[in-house]
Design a protein around this nucleic acid. Structure first.
Length: 271
DNA sequence: CCGGACGCCTGTCGGC
DNA sequence: TGCCGACAGGCGTCCG
């Protein structure tokens, strides 16, 4: 569920409560996430100072005095800052209690999320090592996408959702970006022109930046660190709007499965 | 190597 | 009211 804007929103929200502070203890109520939380995690984390927080794609990285925490929110995960005494709800799987009484609480009903400690630098970790460029940073643009697309036949929507190509774009923002660029999500990646990839790269940046400004998209699960929703759902142009009028031409927005994922597009504006 | 299908989990919603 | 299938923001693995 959380894509780059939701993870970025979460990062900005939790950073002031964590950066430079010392971890008092890790409390785990459910160890079975995507990878099980190992039995030594509590011992490793207790007493360590959190030196830095950052984001890589949809991963959150927390640099500690020794090693790092690697966190992913999967489909349904969220992180909130709560007073340590707040009773946990269902699916509140763990608390990272800080020495000042603040507490980072992870909720994840579907348990596709990840919370692991790693000893080596994160950029060497297999989950991070192969990731493509950040879409909002240098190194990402139309010429890069055009080059990577080569003669590939997969739908362009699946192509931009591949984290090895570019990180952070999930099902919502893929549909939104392709609408802005006027590209049909089912077009083979290798049959999109360099000029259109330039437009697509700009559209991706625009959509992600807009959403970050709005605090991300809340459809069902996503909440910000203070429990409030993000408001970008109100600005979605096609996602979730099947059967409704295209804001630009009035045609009815269609939904189609592409790569087992629902995709939304305007049949008139996108080709 | 590439692309598509599937599985991992729980919750919600709509139709019958 | 209850049941059942479809679907949900991600991603790794397997297979042809």
């Amino acid at each position: 569920m959380p894509e780059l804007p939701e993870v970025e929103t979460t990062l900005r929200g939790i950073r002031p409560y964590l950066e430079g502070r010392r971890i008092q203890e890790l409390k785990v109520r459910e160890r079975r996430l995507r990878y099980p939380i190992t039995d030594d995690a509590e011992e490793i984390l207790a007493g360590q100072r959190m030196l830095s927080l950052s984001r890589r794609g949809k991963y959150l990285l927390m640099g500690l005095e020794k090693g790092s925490l690697l966190i992913h929110l999967g489909m349904s995960g969220s992180l909130r800052i709560v007073p340590a005494a707040t009773p946990p709800g269902i699916h509140d799987h763990l608390d990272l209690v800080m020495e000042d009484g603040g507490c980072l609480r992870m909720r994840d009903p579907r348990r596709f999320g990840l919370f692991i400690w790693i000893a080596d630098p994160p950029e060497k970790h297999p989950l991070i090592r192969e990731l493509g460029p950040e879409p909002l940073e240098e190194g990402f643009g139309g010429d890069y996408l055009f080059f990577r697309a080569g003669n590939r036949h997969l739908p362009v929507k699946a192509f931009i959702m591949d984290a090895k190509v570019v990180v952070g774009i999930g099902n919502i923002y893929a549909s939104e970006s392709l609408f802005l660029a006027g590209i049909h999500p089912n077009r083979p990646a290798g049959q999109v022109s360099a000029a259109l990839y330039d437009l697509l790269a700009r559209s991706i940046r625009k959509v992600l930046a807009e959403s970050i400004t709005s605090g991300g998209t809340s459809l069902r699960d996503f909440v910000r660190e203070d429990g409030n929703p993000g408001y970008f759902a109100q600005q979605l142009r096609v996602y979730g709007r099947e059967g409704q009028a295209c804001h630009y031409c009035g045609s009815l927005i269609q939904r189609e499965k592409i790569g087992q994922r629902s995709s939304f597009f305007c049949p008139n504006c996108q080709y």
